[in-house]
């Protein structure tokens, strides 16, 4: 069971959190202007990277806040967590392989 650092509460057990997949996907401002394919990309397609990826998490059984994280999907280790709207941290040079 991982230890995850909530940017609001500090380190807590994984069981308090939910992962919501890829982060930094903005909702299109004018959906009507998108083709079906572009809209499909937004609602269905995710990168699912083997290695470092940016993810959205929420601290459901804690403060209830959503935040972003940079995590290695191979080792499950977190590089960092950060608040919504904050600059995303850089991907470490080993690329998570």
């Amino acid at each position: 069971m991982l230890v995850i650092k909530c940017p609001f509460c500090g380190e807590r057990d994984q069981t308090e959190f939910t992962c919501h997949g890829e982060a930094h996907i903005a909702r299109p401002e004018n959906p009507d202007e998108l083709t079906d394919e572009q809209w499909g990309d937004y609602i269905f397609f995710r990168q699912n990277i083997k290695g470092y990826q940016y993810e959205r998490w929420s601290h459901d059984h804690g403060c209830g806040r959503w935040f972003n994280a940079l995590r290695n999907s191979v080792t499950d280790q977190f590089v960092d967590t950060y608040k919504i709207g904050e600059e995303k941290p850089a991907i470490p040079s080993d690329e998570g392989k």
Binding site: R56, S58, W66, I84
Partner: peptide, 8 residues
């Protein structure tokens, strides 16, 4: 609701 008002 929280997802939309917190993240978007």
């Amino acid at each position: 609701i929280e997802e939309w008002i917190q993240t978007e």
